[in-house]
Simulated scan of single mutants.
Amino acid sequence: MSRSGWFVESLATQSLVIFAIRTRTVPFFRSHPSLPLTLAALGVVLVGAVLPASPLAAPLGFAPLPGGFFAALVVMVIGHLVLVELGKRWFYRAAATPPTGAPTDLGTRFVRRRAARFSVAAPPVRPLRRRRPGGPRPPAATGADPV
């Protein structure tokens, strides 16, 4: 039974944590996930919860779970998501404050560098190339052929 409980709890927390890490804001209140993402995650959790009571339970080494486990599962998942939110806030707050004595532009570079692994950045904008002051000039468009 412990294998079944560990499987269901692990699957539920890992599937539902995607809602917390997909945005900087609080999920479901300030940032709504798409319907396909919500249905897919809840479907995975539902299949995982039903699997220990299905005919596939014996070959997988699972045993049916008592009803009280699912009440504890709800508490564990909520606690896990709250801890993920607290960790996420700590991460972004620590990333936003520049090191002591550092200029503020280093702070924004620090945030970008630290968060680069977790976000998709837009491609950098290349500055226009300027013509050097003594370089070759394009021919004048006077209509006459250059000699």
Rank of each mutant, 00 (worst) to 15 (best):
A53L: 11
V75H: 04
L39C: 08
V74C: 01
R131G: 02
K88T: 12
F29W: 08
R114M: 14
S4R: 06
R22W: 05
P27I: 05
G67T: 03
I78A: 13
V45I: 12
L56H: 07
L81D: 01
T38S: 08
A94M: 10
V147M: 04
A63H: 02
S15W: 06
P66G: 04
P52K: 00
T13L: 12
P98Q: 08
F70R: 04
L128N: 06
A71G: 03
L73N: 01
D105F: 15
L11Y: 00
I78G: 01
G67W: 04
R109P: 00
P27S: 03
P36C: 05
F69I: 00
I21E: 11
L56I: 12
F70M: 00
V47D: 06
V77F: 05
A144L: 13
F118R: 07
S34Q: 08
R114C: 08
R3F: 13
G67S: 00
L65G: 00
G134S: 09
T13S: 11
P133W: 13
M76A: 13
A116C: 10
V82E: 05
S2D: 15
F29A: 13
T25G: 12
S10I: 04
L42H: 12
P33W: 04
V125F: 07
L81H: 04
R130L: 10
M1P: 02
A63C: 04
P127D: 06
R126C: 08
R117I: 13
V45H: 03
T100L: 13
F69Q: 04
G68C: 00
G135C: 11
V75E: 01
G43I: 15
G101K: 05
A57M: 03
V44M: 13
P123I: 03
G5E: 15
V82P: 01
V75C: 02
H32V: 14
A40Y: 11
A20N: 05
V74S: 06
S2F: 15
I21Y: 05
W6D: 14
L65H: 02
